[in-house]
Design a protein around this nucleic acid. Structure first.
Lengths: 176, 176
DNA sequence: TACTGACATGTCAGAAAGTACATGTCTAAT
DNA sequence: ATTAGACATGTACTTTCTGACATGTCAGTA
């Protein structure tokens, strides 16, 4: 159900095409909920058939811009306030960490350094965005708040990776 | 593919039944990669047919204890070192946060307080485990390292929630 | 002895998600 | 004039995941 409400929520803030939404998922949204265009387009058509979104403009190359209807916005509100949150998350990077004991110490350290590097790059990216982006719509202001969650998380991930590297006998902090 | 290697990895450390594995997912593993018994049992049978795990003991009520074979352990090693990590994570709690602007300030704060409470309980649980659990096998020692990741993450989540509550005009820090 | 709750394993249908295939348009640069 | 790359939307197949259904055993207790 989450994808459906993600789309509905984005289209409650501003009108967008499937293509725009796909890009949005590739950038920000995909960091917490990945989705490809092959999932997005069919879902948009379903949402449209159910009257939760509507086409507000058409453009070149068959471009269709959608916007949430009142019913759509109400559906998001219902989801947010009445449907219990699925708190558990899915993280392959941490799943893999359970099995670092099966690697040689050097292999384990390589993994942890990659882990740290990946989150460091995330963090750099986030800080870049923070510097040059001024949120305008209400939706963007909320996104800005979530961006900060990404910063907190990335910092925690890096701190953990450094701690874990010590556990796995890192000779010296190289790649930080 | 992840579930397959999660099972294989767990069965590389110690022999377990599907029931044991299910409980393991409900507790620790499920925090980073959820799975139900309806997914676990068929996967175990597949793994068994492929010779990646084998039955090492049988018990009451049809209980079957599995253990990874050498081929199984090799498969995990290959996965860890040769298959690129899927770095992006999936988090419904953060997805929902993108749409807090659609709620009234009070509703948004309620959500953020629930968010904080949930992670605080996680954190308490983790600290409890840290105090009373002594890892024995290599797999458990690695799990202990991942547990620490949970601590870092939960602390970051709580810190963020507090910051976000200020953004959403929290009159006073109540529930911390 | 009857019952409850934990133990234990499975299947099945449908939903969600991922990968690959497929097609076509518009713009800017060469 | 051609061509490359971004724009734009879709389908089809397969795998993964969830939720519900289904069955049965064993240990402890009332």
């Amino acid at each position: 159900m989450s994808l459906r409400f993600a789309l509905l929520g984005l289209l409650s803030d501003q009108s967008m095409s499937g293509y725009d939404l796909t890009k949005r998922f590739e950038q920000s949204m995909g960091n917490v909920w990945p989705a490809r265009h092959s999932q997005i387009y069919p879902e948009l058509n379903k949402l449209n058939n159910e009257g939760l979104i509507e086409i507000v403009a058409e453009g070149p190359r068959g471009r269709k811009e959608y916007q949430a209807t009142d019913a759509g916005r109400a559906a998001v509100h219902h989801w947010l306030t009445k449907i219990p949150t699925e708190w558990s998350i899915r993280s392959e990077p941490l799943l893999r960490s359970f099995f670092l004991w099966m690697l040689s110490p050097e292999e384990a350290r390589t993994y942890l350094r990659d882990y740290r590097t990946w989150f460091q790059q995330r963090l750099d990216g986030y800080n870049e965005i923070k510097q040059y982006w001024t949120p305008e719509t209400e939706g963007e202001k909320a996104s800005r708040v979530v961006l900060e969650a990404g910063v907190y998380q990335a910092e925690a991930a890096i701190a953990w990776a450094n701690w874990a590297l010590e556990q796995y006998g890192d000779p010296r902090d190289s790649d930080a």
